[in-house]
């Protein structure tokens, strides 16, 4: 057997081994999480929230190729939905699932309302307008004291519960978030493979040519914006419920940039990449605790480095969940 043949025989098996390893680690992590100290579960919860945000924003940036720098606004809409509808602030105490639904709808509506005027613009203006929009939302929250509590935020939010089961401990949120992340990931992944997903890709590649084959680009982009905003808003509502406190500080421009960075580092357009990107973004600061201030500097430099050296990110676009599964079952 020649060297080449040996390699050819080994490679599929080793990539299968990688797939097995990824799955094994994921399952081991999930199984072990409930037994970890609360502190670590909280870290994993926040990892899952970032993955959820990444899945949402990736629809706009990765699939459709639009740079949205105001994503955090939708996150804020969700968080403040929960804060206002389940706290002493307005003395409303609606059930968690209902608020989740309201937040999802509000997110979609905000996304469409922002999208209608903005999506007709050329791509690069979009980045700056969404950035402005994110800032507008933050400034309004900061100043609308009677409603949002201003810079002090809203505290003493209700404990969440679903069908009588209380969701309060970090481990409860872990299970909730796991389910939501898996669902959102599945929807996003199937959307990408649908005809709408193909149209998004066409818009990303060449917007004019996409119009030329009959795609109503404004509508397709609106759909991307609305879906992404919905996911962001749901993430916000869960975030609010888990923190039981919201303030404008969580919704700064830097947060938007961090989510973009996470997608870029992991691999633009790929759900598995988002998981990798979020892991780096969230776990790195935990590992580099003593160098807390250096981490964002490091992340910024990593972003430049990756964009130049490996623009596809850590996980390439073509390596989606389907490939992983196919390798696992050995097809």
């Amino acid at each position: 057997m020649s060297v080449a043949e040996t390699l050819a025989a080994v490679r599929p098996r080793s990539s299968r081994a990688v797939a097995f390893l990824v799955f094994a680690i994921a399952i081991a992590l999930i199984a072990a999480t409930p037994f970890l100290p609360n502190y670590y579960i909280r870290v994993i919860d926040s990892l899952l929230i970032y993955i959820l945000l990444g899945i949402g924003l990736n629809i706009v940036i990765g699939y459709t190729g639009l740079l949205d720098l105001g994503f955090v606004a939708f996150y804020a809409v969700g968080a403040y939905s929960y804060a206002l509808l389940a706290s002493p602030q307005l003395d409303l105490h609606l059930p968690f699932l209902l608020i989740l639904l309201v937040a999802a709808c509000l997110g979609a509506i905000t996304g469409i309302l922002l999208g209608i005027p903005v999506l007709r613009l050329r791509g690069d203006y979009l980045a700056i307008v969404t950035l402005g929009f994110g800032e507008i939302v933050r400034i309004i929250i900061n100043n609308l004291d009677w409603l949002t509590g201003g810079p002090k935020g809203i505290a003493r939010l209700d404990k969440a519960s679903i069908l009588g089961i209380q969701i309060a401990r970090p481990v409860d949120f872990f299970w909730l978030l796991l389910v939501v992340v898996l669902l959102a990931g599945l929807v996003a992944w199937r959307l990408e493979r649908s005809i709408l997903g193909k149209a998004w890709a066409a818009i990303r590649e060449d917007q004019d040519a996409a119009r030329g084959i009959g795609i109503n680009t404004t509508n397709a982009k609106l759909a991307a914006f609305a879906t992404s905003a919905t996911i962001g808003s749901i993430a916000g509502a869960i975030f609010g419920a888990s923190q039981r406190f919201v303030s404008p500080e969580s919704f700064t421009l830097q947060e938007s940039v961090l989510i973009v960075l996470m997608i870029v580092v992991g691999g633009i357009g790929n759900i598995l990449g988002i998981v990798a990107g979020a892991a780096i973004l969230i776990l790195l600061p935990e590992v580099l605790r003593e160098f807390a201030e250096w981490r964002i500097l490091f992340l910024g430099l990593l972003m430049i480095f990756l964009i130049i050296v490996r623009p596809a990110g850590i996980v390439p676009r073509s390596f989606g969940p389907d490939k992983l599964i196919r390798r696992l079952i050995g097809k």
Partner: peptide
Amino acid sequence: EVCFYPTDV
């Protein structure tokens, strides 16, 4: 494939 967007969307 993407050309079938108008009919299949």
